[in-house]
């Protein structure tokens, strides 16, 4: 059961490979979502992959395992999870010491307020300080705190990051423009199926008295993966 050899593959790949594009125009999917928005005309994968996806999806529907509506809802659910959610959590932790305490000791409990349920996974929040910089990787696949941050960025899933983050983290951080002083320890957390990590970046200087909404604007996705710091206070407009 191999979907077979093919001449080209698309750029979105877990690995390094040729990146010529293959265009096929089979319109199997509906053209509108259930709330009437047009679905983007986007690139389809090779025909063999389309055949496999259609076959599996139709069999799962015929067997009563899922319905088309379940798929639409799952897509909506996924799209509702973005780094903005993580940013709200970080901003609250910066502003509310009691919440931060709970977040560090029992993240799953703390996140209930945000409607986030990590089950069956567990979330571990690691805090950046004057002495420690944390970064997160999944060397074996692409495990990521999806309920908090949405889907991982392309580089997180690819070989270069997965290979080198654990061997030469400071060099990798530099590729993101992040220079960690020598005296600061770098801790790399390798995620797995059951345990996901979220970095609590350091609160930037000059943000005293800011409300959580404004603080959240400083919190980027990459700062919660630990490849960057939060934005500086001067980097956002009032």
């Amino acid at each position: 059961m191999n979907i077979g050899s093919r001449q080209s593959r698309r750029a979105e790949s877990g690995d390094d490979m040729n990146e010529t594009h293959e265009h096929s125009h089979v319109h199997e999917h509906p053209t509108h979502t259930h709330d009437g928005k047009p679905i983007q005309e986007d690139e389809l994968p090779p025909l063999e992959a389309q055949i496999l996806e259609t076959s599996v999806r139709e069999l799962l529907i015929e067997k009563g395992v899922i319905t088309p509506d379940d798929i639409r809802r799952a897509i909506d659910e996924r799209e509702s999870r973005t780094p903005a959610l993580g940013a709200k959590i970080v901003a609250r932790a910066w502003d509310d010491a009691e919440f931060k305490g709970l977040l560090m000791s029992d993240a799953d409990e703390a996140l209930k307020d945000f409607g986030i349920n990590m089950s069956p996974m567990e979330l571990c929040v690691v805090e950046n300080t004057e002495d420690v910089h944390n970064m997160v990787v999944c060397t074996l696949c692409s495990c990521y705190p999806r309920p908090v941050l949405g889907i991982p960025p392309a580089w997180y899933k690819r070989r270069d990051y997965r290979s080198r983050a654990v061997r030469e983290p400071r060099a990798v951080l530099q590729e993101f423009g992040t220079v960690v002083p020598d005296q600061k320890q770098v801790r790399v957390h390798d995620s797995n199926a059951d345990l996901r990590y979220l970095v609590l970046p350091q609160r930037p200087a000059g943000t005293e008295g800011w409300d959580q909404k404004k603080l959240a604007r400083l919190v980027t996705r990459d700062s919660m993966i630990g490849v960057c710091d939060a934005l500086a206070a001067t980097e956002i407009a009032d």
């Binding site: 074996l140 580089w155 070989r159 270069d160 997965r162 290979s163 590729e175 993101f176």
Partner: peptide
């Protein structure tokens, strides 16, 4: 892949 040599990360 962990720890193996690889190329630069392009964000």
């Amino acid at each position: 892949y962990g720890g193996l040599p690889a190329g630069p990360v392009d964000p």
